[in-house]
């Protein structure tokens, strides 16, 4: 329990009116609990496009000279892109179109789809084309 939560919980939010606690006080206490929860959440007003672009740039810097694809996709910025979920797929596709790079594992994990034919595995240009073609048929990318 954090130091913040001690005085908040002292309001006695039991769900039923308690002696000496007004309705207004309960509302204030509930709002404080909400604020407390938000304090611990990762929160950003950055658009999802911008967020993906930022994470992509950080990933490119952090991977440096790494040759291991398995290591590259486990790096924090890459995992954060995956963590953005389905909402981020159009942004990832735009990033892929803008600057082709190895976003294929992220797209596969998020969508559950693999449009890359075996003959294209490992070929950046061919894998990019396969994903953008799939995205167009799905109406995710113009």
């Amino acid at each position: 329990m954090s130091a913040l939560s001690v005085p908040i919980l002292a309001f006695g939010l039991s769900g039923t009116p308690s002696g000496g606690i007004s309705r207004s006080s309960e509302i204030v206490a509930a709002q404080m609990l909400t604020a407390h929860a938000h304090f611990h959440e990762v929160f950003t007003r950055t658009s999802i496009d911008r967020r993906v672009a930022q994470l992509a740039e950080t990933w490119r810097i952090e991977r440096g000279v790494v040759s291991s694809m398995s290591e590259m996709v486990l790096m924090s910025p890459y995992q954060q892109v995956i963590g953005l979920g389905r909402e981020a797929v159009p942004s990832i596709l735009r990033e892929l179109s803008r600057q082709p790079d190895h976003w294929f594992w992220a797209l596969q994990v998020i969508t559950g789809v693999n449009p890359i034919p075996p003959s294209a595995e490992g070929n950046l240009s061919a894998m990019t084309k396969a994903w953008l073609a799939w995205a167009k048929t799905e109406g995710l990318f113009a």
Partner: peptide, 26 residues
């Protein structure tokens, strides 16, 4: 990012060679 050291050593500068993850590397 079009190829990596394994492909390069194998004489292939068109593909990224690595055993994992599946489907995304040659």
């Amino acid at each position: 990012p079009g190829y990596n050291c394994v492909g390069f050593a194998a004489g292939d500068d068109t593909r990224w060679w690595w055993p994992q993850p599946p489907n995304v590397a040659y």
